[in-house]
Design a protein around this nucleic acid. Structure first.
Lengths: 154, 154
DNA sequence: CTTGACTCCGTACTATGGTACATGGTGTAC
DNA sequence: GTACACCATGTACCATAGTACGGAGTCAAG
């Protein structure tokens, strides 16, 4: 079909690296719909949609692992929309928790910045001193990374 | 001195893994203040403070690399408190940008969740459909991870 | 003096999401 | 018919922050 793309064309269309597409294939996220006799990968419209799906879901903060689950839900005939909804809700809770954490972090940083008088030598720097304290009111920037190793896309 | 700890005691005191302490040593973040003739590492009060510093700074969202810079600022006699302040401000800007991003993400997720009617089979799931769209109003969860590979501590 | 806990070092492995490179085959335009 | 872009595979490498493990040496209590 005319809509079948080779890997380089697909990569360009989606704005990703060729290697990334083959990386997704290794993770069983996205395979070619067919191959030329030479072995060249071909991607039809479905595959192109699938790659968009991956990229959009990534933009929503889903990990590749979670995206694989979402894609499997789509295929499974027994899966319900509610299953997807629950995953989205879990992710939302995760995002909102992370926002709270970061607010606490920002507050602690602001506090430190306020106490700092720029001219002092660093032996007397209140920021550094506070970082040495045993018991801090430091934001306990706890766990729950949203997407570990997050690179995102600009 | 009585306050010198062996690596296992320091690890327990700080609530970290022994291997983590030796990992910090490899990164030139935290070395033993001395060694027993047997080669056992010993950590004095300064080293204990230094480890707290690392953990507190981590809790504020600094990477180990940035923490190394902060520790160097503390040692350098030419460094000024303002240098530290600037680093804290840069980190704050980073944190606040990340918060904005996550807000956009949360909004997009909420929107998707609202449009979902749980009983539907997944072929008709509006969330999955929207993820396939070419042009989405998806949050462009762009770049700027706060702390890549973030594991944090609970 | 033996047992068990602790420590040493070096290396490999984990997760996450890619990127890079070498070596060789393919496809096509001129 | 040859040059050049493209693609194949496999493997290694990047950052980040650790964790795990094997084999050997050490320390303290009984």
């Amino acid at each position: 079909m005319a809509s079948d793309l080779k890997i380089g064309q697909l990569a360009k269309q989606a704005g990703v690296n060729i290697e990334t597409i083959r990386y997704y294939e290794r993770l069983n996220l996205l395979g070619p719909s067919s191959r030329l006799p030479s072995g060249y990968r071909l991607y039809n419209r479905d595959a192109q949609r699938r790659l968009r799906f991956i990229k959009n879901a990534q933009a929503l903060g889903f990990t590749l692992h979670e995206i694989a689950e979402l894609l499997n839900l789509r295929v499974s005939s027994r899966a319900r929309c509610g299953d997807v909804q629950r995953k989205a809700e879990a992710k939302l809770a995760h995002v909102e928790a992370k926002i709270q954490e970061l607010h606490a972090l920002a507050g602690a940083l602001k506090h430190l910045i306020r106490t700092c008088r720029a001219g002092q030598p660093t032996e007397a720097c209140p920021i550094l001193e506070s970082l040495e304290q045993e018991t801090t009111n430091m934001a306990r920037a706890s766990s729950s990374s949203l997407r570990p190793g997050d690179k995102g896309r600009s």
